[in-house]
Design a protein around this nucleic acid. Structure first.
Lengths: 202, 202
DNA sequence: ACTTCGATATGACAAATGTCACTATTTGAT
DNA sequence: ATCAAATAGTGACATTTGTCATATCGAAGT
């Protein structure tokens, strides 16, 4: 009997998958959450054999949860279940040594297969992602630069961005300037546009 | 026995729901598609009693399919199943006289309930949407203002916007200023964000 | 006829933004 | 141990943005 935990914020999918997984004789869903923090709290208590995590969930991303699980070093295997094939997410997932990475653009039976496979020690990655690994235009922005741009995308003025990131306003402007020069543009709007086109920014 | 058709492009959800609906004794999924055109083709042949349609699917939107069904004037009831509570979508759906409008942010059992209810002639709308109906924001921007904002959205600086629209730079700034005050913001980015949220801007 | 509103414009001013040069600390890689 | 990057900061400066007051003109409405 394989014990499962499911973190997925879209209720329709969460409940549908839970019921479906429960139908399998060898699978048992011992808990589920719609938010990352609750998921992490539950996982510490329940210690399921497999945790199925969506990335974009409120509170704490599925990848963060995966990081925590890796550090904790229990038996719990992680299967990431997400909507889009975003290279950056995939890379982080690989670094966090997840056992599976599956797109929601696959039939639900694949999820069931994947769960069984990872329990046999296998690693299952959606082929779409592995292919991209070599051709993806890599993000030239550093973590900090991306953080700044993310704030800028909210429409915030420099001062507020600085406050939010605990930086000086000057530093924020420097970062933005560096971003513009890397992306070959001259203002925030264009920079944001490019970063979004390339999926460096949601 | 209620016959169902499911148009949903996210395979994970499509197959999960199909299997789940099949488990109900009184429900039978006679077909499904991941794209709008195929769905419409199928619907003409299969004439299910209830069509569950996602809005954002490739080829032809679920709302377009609903329009076609309304014109065709068969018995087929439409249940829209979509991710976000966007007022514009909801209004179109109401105009197309759909029998149900459900958010994916609801448990899967709700879908089953909804199907049964609409078959009894009831109309089921997600409460989140009905509440909004009365506060629907109409576009306060004039044509010219919208034109200016559209240019601004391309990331262009004032001067270029002015040149593109054969206006003086000052006029462009005045328009932008007027836009900000109408929308209650203080810079282009936020104005663009709001205009996009409200679908005044693509 | 009168008023209001939209479109267009200018000028002046304050604030925000973007550029540059230069420095210091920390960290990862060779 | 050294070097290159990433991180964080300052100060000065030019440019761009956003605000406001004010004006003209024409169209639509009362």
């Amino acid at each position: 009997m394989i014990t499962l935990y499911l973190a997925e914020d879209q209720s329709m999918l969460n409940s549908a998958l839970t019921q479906l997984l429960e139908l399998e004789d060898d699978l048992h869903v011992i808990g589920s959450a719609r938010d990352g923090k609750m998921a992490w709290a539950d996982l510490q208590r329940l210690r399921p054999q497999v945790a199925i995590l969506d990335i974009e969930i409120p509170g704490m991303s599925g990848l963060d949860v995966a990081d925590h699980l890796q550090v904790a070093d229990w038996e719990t295997k992680v299967v990431i279940l997400t909507t889009f094939a975003q290279q950056a997410y995939f890379e982080r997932a690989v670094k966090a040594q997840v056992a599976g990475y599956l797109l929601k653009d696959s039939p639900s039976d694949d999820l069931i297969d994947t769960v069984r496979q990872v329990m046999q020690g296998k690693t299952i990655y959606a082929p779409e992602l592995v292919v991209n690994m070599f051709s993806a235009a890599t993000n030239p922005l550093t973590d900090r630069e991306l953080a700044v741009l993310t704030e800028a995308d909210k429409g915030l003025p420099t001062k507020t961005i600085a406050a939010n990131l605990y930086l000086s306003a000057g530093t924020v402007r420097n970062y933005l300037s560096a971003i513009f020069s890397k992306l070959g543009v001259h203002n925030r709007l264009e920079a944001i546009k490019i970063a979004k086109d390339n999926k460096w920014l949601t």
